[in-house]
Simulated scan of single mutants.
Amino acid sequence: MIIDVYQDTVCPWCRIGKKNLLEAMDRWSETHKEPYSVRWHAFQLDPTTPQEGRNFKEVMTAKMGGEERLGQVIAHTCEAGKACSIDFNMDRIEYMPNTLRSHQLIALAPEEYKLPLIDGIYKAYFEDGRDIGKLDVLLELAKETGMGYIDALRKQMEDGAGMNEVEEDLNHASQIGITGVPFFIFNNKYSFSGAQSPEGFLKVLEMIEEKEKENA
């Protein structure tokens, strides 16, 4: 089974959805021998964000229609995170970054580093309040993940390596009508959006299994 996941690195629901998906796949694998692979794709919730980023509180207050509503949304997000053992320290976030560079780094990472790198980027932003729009911060995260060729990686990123793959993801997302993330595509046939619970993902997997049997 191939699972394509479109996500943005400043999307808390993408972080929740990723964790729940992988938990569901671990449980599914206990009773199913079919191997699976997850392919991570770039999406930008706000591609108009300048490279230097914007003030997080100002952006989110305007988007949510006021500080009171923003507080409610943050509280709801934090509770959803706690339900699946994820911490969101939103009070530490100062900037709403442009996420292109973070997607570029993920595209450049060897396969064995992609998942820990994505986890590291999420933690850096949502728990530590680090500015993941900055190249130096991203290279620090790559080093923390175990990627030991940081000087070469810096040159690659400065030269634009990996951006073609990111642009292909963004263009394909637009072509197939993705307007929000997380967005999941199973076996290039079945798709849905939103951060399901592990049980929700398992129901989707059962449905796919039934449909595949019908079409066999």
Rank of each mutant, 00 (worst) to 15 (best):
K33W: 00
K33T: 12
E34L: 11
R39P: 01
R39K: 13
W40V: 03
H41T: 05
Q44H: 11
P47L: 01
T48I: 09
T49E: 02
P50Q: 03
P50M: 00
P50N: 04
Q51N: 13
G53Q: 02
G53C: 00
G53M: 02
G53P: 03
F56G: 06
K57Y: 13
E58C: 07
E58F: 11
V59A: 15
M60C: 04
M60W: 11
A62Y: 08
G66K: 04
E67C: 03
V73G: 04
V73Q: 06
C84W: 06
S85Y: 00
F88Y: 11
N89Y: 08
M90P: 07
I93L: 02
I93D: 02
E94C: 12
E94F: 10
E94S: 14
Y95C: 12
Y95Q: 13
Y95H: 13
L100W: 09
H103M: 06
L105N: 09
L108H: 05
K114L: 10
L115C: 03
P116R: 06
L117A: 01
I121N: 07
K123W: 05
K123H: 14
K123N: 12
E127Q: 15
D128P: 05
D128L: 15
G129C: 07
D131Q: 10
I132D: 01
I132F: 03
G133L: 06
D136N: 11
L139A: 10
L139G: 08
L139P: 06
E144Y: 09
T145S: 07
M147A: 06
M147V: 09
G148L: 12
I150K: 09
I150F: 10
D151T: 10
L153S: 05
K155Y: 12
K155P: 10
M157A: 08
N164R: 10
N164P: 00
V166D: 01
E167P: 00
E167N: 14
N171F: 09
A173E: 04
A173R: 00
